[in-house]
Amino acid sequence: MANAQAALGSKRPAGGAVRRNRFARDFGVNKYLYLMMVPVIAYYVVFHYAPMYGALIAFKNYTPIKGILGSDWVGLENFSDFFHSYYFWRILKNTILISVYTLLFEFPAPILLALLLNEIRSKAFRRAAQTVTYMPYFISLVVVCGIITDFTNSDGVINHLFTLFGYDGQAMLQKPGLFRPIYVLSEIWQHVGWESIIYVAALMNVDQEQYEAARMDGASRLKQMFYITLPGIMPTIAIMLILRMGNLMNVGFEKIILLYNPGTYDTADVISSFVYRKGLLEFGWSYSSAVGLFNSVINLALLITANAVSRRVNNSSLW
């Protein structure tokens, strides 16, 4: 009996062969889906994984003449210079504050908009509201920043309105204390409609029978929202929050650069804008690469932490 089992066991294919056979069968059935994946994989390989080779610059005294491999190795010197510099705490504080303010005020905004749109019974009014809120997202960022600058100038519309309540009339973007509120409010205005799309789609999957049962029990629309709608889209909210946490330190430098000025560096200068100035304007490639790599490591740690917390608390996670 033992010999027979040993003979049968010897005829079983190895684990690698089983996986290859399974993949071959699956590829034969879904070969067109696999072919559709090729451009996506190529995009990530070319534009996301291949550039990781350039991270070596952060550990070298890079000069274009010598190239990446030929440049002198300096180890953690660039990181040490950054950590001991005057700019470290300033840009770290600004990045964290702007990111946290944006997370607290801009992240819930599309959820609230989706909930409000879901309560509108008139389809025509709902489509009009969606169109109006989506439009700012498709406006060029340069145009958006130009609008913000014009409206907050000393002779701008918003500035004139604020002078009625005792404001001194000075250009708002010239005041360091007003930069963060202006940035966060403009982020809400620009992204609230577009980011609400995924929540509107999630609302379509909520079981309608639950609403019927709640109405039969006498639940108001507000209670239906809190006890049916919100729990129904909570997995989507959790996933979006995890993704947002993974980009918490990635404050876009384009908008910052278009809005800030040397007078507001104390509250507006963030890691990405600092990397832009040091790397492209002052040609400090190695130093700026070290700063950018530090920022990426922080984002990775935040992503892993947020995913672990969400998996334990909400049973929803990316992996």
Rank of each mutant, 00 (worst) to 15 (best):
P64S: 13
E106R: 14
Y62F: 15
V291N: 09
V270M: 08
A58F: 09
T95D: 07
Q130Y: 08
T95R: 07
P108D: 10
H84L: 14
V45Q: 05
G9Y: 10
L300I: 13
R244Q: 10
I182F: 09
L230C: 06
N250D: 15
I198N: 04
G15E: 11
V143F: 11
I68R: 03
T131S: 15
R22C: 04
I182D: 02
G193P: 07
M36D: 03
V45G: 06
G169C: 04
R277Q: 13
I228G: 04
L164H: 13
T95P: 11
P176Q: 08
M245E: 05
L241C: 11
G218W: 07
P64F: 12
N30P: 00
E77K: 10
G9I: 00
A219Y: 05
M234E: 01
I147R: 10
Q130E: 13
P51T: 09
M135A: 15
P108L: 12
L230V: 14
S122F: 03
M37D: 01
N61Y: 09
R12K: 14
N299L: 08
Y276P: 11
S310M: 00
A219K: 03
R127E: 10
V192L: 13
T236Q: 02
I271P: 08
V275H: 11
L300M: 14
N205L: 14
G75E: 00
L303I: 02
V251F: 14
V192R: 02
V184R: 01
T267M: 10
V297H: 04
L281M: 12
S286H: 06
Y44H: 03
V132Q: 06
S71V: 07
A308S: 05
N3R: 15
Y34E: 03
H191C: 04
G284P: 00
T264P: 07
R90N: 13
V184A: 00
P231K: 08
A58N: 08
S272G: 05
R20L: 14
F27L: 14
S220R: 01
L293Q: 04
Y260N: 05
Y287I: 12
R22A: 15
Q210Y: 12
D207A: 06
V184S: 01
N153V: 03
E212L: 04
S122A: 13
G146I: 01
G67I: 09
L113E: 04
E195K: 09
D168G: 06
N315V: 11
D72A: 12
K31G: 12
I147C: 10
M216K: 02
G146Q: 11
L116S: 09
W89A: 13
V206L: 05
A124T: 08
I98D: 07
E119W: 04
A4F: 14
G16I: 07
E195L: 02
L230H: 06
E119H: 05
R180A: 01
Y53N: 12
Y183I: 05
G16K: 11
S80V: 13
A109L: 08
M135F: 15
T63R: 13
Q174W: 03
F162Y: 11
Q5D: 15
R127M: 01
Y276A: 11
A109K: 01
L104M: 11
F226V: 04
I120D: 02
E282L: 09
D217G: 02
H191F: 07
K66A: 14
G15N: 10
S10N: 07
G169Q: 05
Y211P: 06
